[in-house]
Design a protein around this nucleic acid. Structure first.
Length: 295
DNA sequence: AAGGCGGGGAC
DNA sequence: GTCCCAGCCTT
């Protein structure tokens, strides 16, 4: 028994959000479009609670896109710290340089122009268009997919991201208050309609939720099979992280011996190191020493 | 469509 | 230990 999208309790979500929104620093109305873009990129796969303090420090160091565009890669990677997926930091630097070089230092408001920027995909482009420029475009992140999947389709697990969901979520958008509605959907997914233990008892749209009405069915075997969480312990990703930590904390180029101690499997260590060089996250100088990229 | 890519906190 | 997180990019 699905919920007809035209019956989705839009105004309930909006009023719930206005009463329960977390005071995230980038929700200050004075936040610039660049600072909002920065918050979105940092929040790609990193919980917002970890992002907030780094975001503040970052803007203290580089208050605007022009100043950041002149930063050196090694400064940027150190400021990024342990937010994870440091390729995002390099793409952010490229992104800022494109905004300065091709958009006169102004973050573009057009979704297609945003999509053309390095590191900006379907979610982030629309989040910036919506939250920085007030446009009524669908903003679909993991929270929105989960809320839509449960409340409208009665399915316990959000399906893998697809273009179809953009149209589905677009069909829910109200005429005027798209941005606050989208922020509300995301917040509902982050605080109430959570992945593992949703707080249905205090959910403002519980009475309309197709999943609740269906008796909160568990995921089917097929749905579970399509999930599959990624391992971390023992993967190249973990080894890369350990090497990057050495490079971030070094005040001079380091020799192979400083890298050898972070991981016992030499073949895997070598593979991880080469992949970092390939990604431009590490550089080897003419004496064979390793360091973060400069420039 | 699938798989790689960090790291920390909740359980 | 497992699971998740305001995804993006390449293949």
């Amino acid at each position: 028994m699905n919920l007809d999208p035209t019956d989705f309790p839009v105004s309930t979500v909006i009023s719930w959000f206005e009463a329960n929104a977390r005071p995230l620093p980038w929700r200050d109305p004075a936040t610039s479009a660049w600072a909002i873009l920065l918050s979105e990129v940092m929040s790609q796969q990193t919980p917002v609670a970890r992002v907030a303090p780094i975001w503040q420090q970052w803007l203290d160091t580089w208050p605007d896109v022009e100043s950041f565009a002149q930063a050196r890669s090694d400064e940027v990677l150190r400021a990024w710290g342990t937010l994870g997926y440091p390729r995002r930091a390099l793409r952010l630097l490229e992104c800022a340089r494109v905004i300065v070089a091709r958009h006169g230092g102004k973050v573009p408001a057009d979704v297609d122009e945003l999509l053309a920027l390095p590191g900006i995909g379907d979610y982030t482009a629309r989040a910036v268009a919506c939250f920085a420029f007030g446009q009524n475009v669908p903003v679909v992140d993991t929270n929105v997919r989960r809320v839509y999947s449960r409340a409208v389709e009665g399915r316990p697990l959000a399906p893998p991201a697809s273009k179809r969901e953009l149209a589905q979520v677009a069909s829910l958008l109200p005429e005027r208050k798209g941005p606050v509605f989208s922020a509300g959907l995301m917040e509902l997914g982050a605080l109430i309609c959570t992945a593992t233990s949703p707080l249905c008892d205090v959910c403002p749209i519980q009475a309309d939720c197709a999943w609740v009405q269906a008796g909160k069915p568990a995921p089917t075997e097929d749905e579970l099979r399509s999930k599959k969480v990624q391992k971390f312990a023992g993967t190249d990703r973990q080894v890369r992280g350990k090497i990057m930590k050495v490079l971030r904390e070094a005040d001079a180029p380091v020799g192979q011996s400083k890298i050898d101690v972070v991981w016992p499997d030499k073949a895997q260590l070598s593979r991880a190191l080469f992949s970092l060089l390939d990604d431009g996250l590490a550089v080897q100088d003419d004496q064979g020493l390793f360091h973060l990229p400069g420039q």
